[in-house]
């Protein structure tokens, strides 16, 4: 199994940390992982994206043109990455702030109202965990318990009391993802 994922949105949405948690979860399952950020000037306020690969085998290129899954969190990223999904692949997006919805018919398109759900949970910071939950519902490539173990590894101990909240957000995401 190899899963090639691009996560793209605004800087500050937790795009990079979501990728990092996914990578840690992969390690918990003894998979090979790579996490390749766009670290350019765009990180300082503009778009941010990260390529995450989880695989049973040694990962060759950490940098890709086409992805099994694109998780898209703003309009610029939709414009840039809709066509980077492999035919038959998966596109997940938050419709918040999206004016041009995806038009491709050869891929699966799912929506998740991450911004809205996080606001309802009164914690905007768990937005990325809601989205991650939605993704894991569609592609259960890592077990939830390993995501939690990954969270424990990637968060410093003073934030460990927030892990139940993150777990809740993942659950909400899993329940809320729906086809577009």
């Amino acid at each position: 199994m190899t899963e090639e994922i691009i996560i793209a949105g605004f800087g500050g949405q937790g795009v990079l940390s979501m990728g990092k948690i996914l990578a840690y979860s992969g390690i918990m399952e003894n998979q090979e992982v790579s996490w390749m950020p766009s670290y350019g000037p765009e990180m300082r306020g503009g778009t941010a994206n990260v390529t995450v690969i989880l695989s049973d085998e040694r990962i060759s290129s950490p940098y890709l043109k086409l992805f099994d899954t694109a998780i898209i969190l703003n309009q610029q990223s939709m414009d840039k990455f809709e066509n980077s999904v492999k035919p038959g692949g998966l596109l997940i997006y938050d419709p918040n702030g999206i004016s041009h919805h995806p038009t491709r018919k050869d891929i699966q398109v799912f929506q998740i109202e991450g911004t809205k759900l996080a606001a309802e949970m009164e914690n905007k910071k768990i937005f990325n965990m809601v989205i991650l939950g939605g993704f894991l519902k569609k592609k259960p490539i890592v077990k939830l318990e390993n995501v939690i173990a990954g969270l424990k590894k990637s968060l410093s101990e003073r934030y460990h009391h927030l892990i139940p909240l993150n777990e809740k957000a993942i659950q909400v995401g899993m329940e809320s993802i729906h086809p577009y």
Partner: peptide
């Protein structure tokens, strides 16, 4: 290079 320096792996 910037790619190997900035990416994360196991």
């Amino acid at each position: 290079d910037g790619l190997i320096g900035q990416m994360m792996e196991k």
